[in-house]
Design a protein around this nucleic acid. Structure first.
Lengths: 164, 164
DNA sequence: GTAGCGTAGTTGAAGACTGAACTATTCCGC
DNA sequence: GCGGAATAGTTCAGTCTTCAACTACGCTAC
């Protein structure tokens, strides 16, 4: 924004404030989302030493043929900035869970490759994480609520991250 | 966790893996939540210079009689750690939007008080933020979806943050 | 072939978050 | 009153994220 002054030529539209119901819905969604993400990350970090951010990187690599991905492709899949991913991969390299490899077809490219140690760490962590997701999410919801969650998520995704 | 070895006395239960539908629902929720929060924070930060975290502090204070709250009370309302809040309030103090005040009834206590400048900053930011929430959330959803969102949020809140 | 532009990825500095350690005050039982 | 436990809040060090600057390579047209 910039000028809070409302002028005749470009009148400031009246804000479309949220009504009480919308407030309630928004707050409930926001707080539950924060608490859930926080809880899942804490469970995972405390029980396995792997943060959820790192876990997602390992998962993405493990699901790929050859267990390797271009840095930019990986960043896109994880909704991460390239910078963030680059830092994170460096840390995972220090742990010996990932190595970087030059990309054959493109001299600019780098591949992040999951090591056997990295895969083993993921295998150990996965049951812990899935149990946590069950406990704090699916066990709390009816099948209809799960369906609603999916519908909601997909609707928002179509707007926020339209399929390219 | 600790030992990945399954013993006879304490057999490792088979992980309750997510099926394809659950995966889809979970991913859709997770990604949409990340994208939405990210988007709202960016809109607000770029257009007003106030991060969503700071904004929430200002809102909480503004809604309170006297526009002041105990640090711990504020932290609880915002689902924030005391440490995080303490840092954030220090930054807000540097901006002149909040001041700390000694608590009369409790010598250990501190009050965070919203200044007039802080209130003005909030007044300027609020229309921007509400428009952003409308655009990226409510404008995308049907009334039924809004209701489902609220139901979902409240259900999870009862589990994650049971009313004391 | 080479200039210019776009893309891939890394780096560094600054801000923000976390958990643990620390100070100061209050509460409670005796 | 007083010693010990609990509470309120801050601080520190370490980690993570962001943004902008930077290097390096590829692509296109001349």
């Amino acid at each position: 924004m910039s000028s809070p002054v409302s002028s005749a030529s470009q009148p400031t539209r009246a804000p479309r404030w949220l009504d009480a119901d919308e407030q309630k819905a928004w707050r409930a969604w926001l707080y539950s989302a924060q608490l859930l993400m926080d809880r899942l990350d804490r469970d995972l970090t405390h029980e396995t030493g792997i943060s959820h951010a790192y876990y997602e990187i390992l998962v993405a690599l493990s699901e790929t043929p050859g267990r390797k991905l271009r840095m930019s492709e990986l960043a896109d899949r994880l909704l991460s900035s390239r910078s963030r991913l680059s830092h994170a991969v460096s840390r995972l390299e220090e742990r010996g869970w990932v190595v970087r490899e030059l990309c054959q077809d493109d001299g600019r490219g780098q591949l992040a490759v999951l090591t056997d140690n990295g895969f083993a760490a993921l295998e150990a962590a996965a049951p812990i994480h899935v149990e946590s997701v069950r406990t704090h999410l699916f066990d709390q919801l009816s099948p209809a609520q799960v369906e609603a969650m999916r519908d909601l998520g997909e609707t928002l995704l179509r707007h926020l991250d339209p399929p390219r």
